[in-house]
């Protein structure tokens, strides 16, 4: 039913922060087409109308915790895992994108 273009895959790759090369884009376009073709059959389910979507297997509601402060992690442990840190903070390359 669908015909996924390389441009569409490039857009999806940009949204999901994946620097894919041309080969990968082309290959994924083809694979996505095949997979979407295979899953498209869920559109055929005729008795889905009026059915409540099920997002969860557990029928729980109102799971909350009291507003109580718990210990945080030691900062050294936190920053030890960082690819780069400076002045107690996580260091990242310059942000060329606009502020959100």
């Amino acid at each position: 039913m669908s015909e996924i273009t390389r441009d569409e895959v490039a857009h999806l790759a940009r949204l999901s922060r994946l620097a894919l090369d041309d080969d990968e884009l082309g290959r994924l376009a083809g694979e996505l087409d095949v997979i979407l073709g295979a899953v498209a059959k869920i559109g055929e389910v005729s008795d889905a109308e009026g059915v409540t979507p099920m997002t969860h297997a557990v029928p729980l509601e109102n799971v909350m915790r009291p507003d109580v402060v718990m210990p945080s992690l030691p900062r050294d442990d936190v920053l030890a895992a960082a690819p780069a840190a400076e002045d107690g903070r996580f260091r990242v390359p310059r942000i060329l994108d606009e502020e959100q």
Binding site: L18, A81, P83, F90, V92, P93, I95, L96
Partner: peptide, 19 residues
């Protein structure tokens, strides 16, 4: 915050390094 980082050469921006 953790894990791999590729291409952080001081020139590239964050979005490119992330990608």
């Amino acid at each position: 915050r953790y894990g791999l980082r590729v291409g952080d050469d001081g020139e590239r921006g964050l979005e490119e390094v992330m990608s």
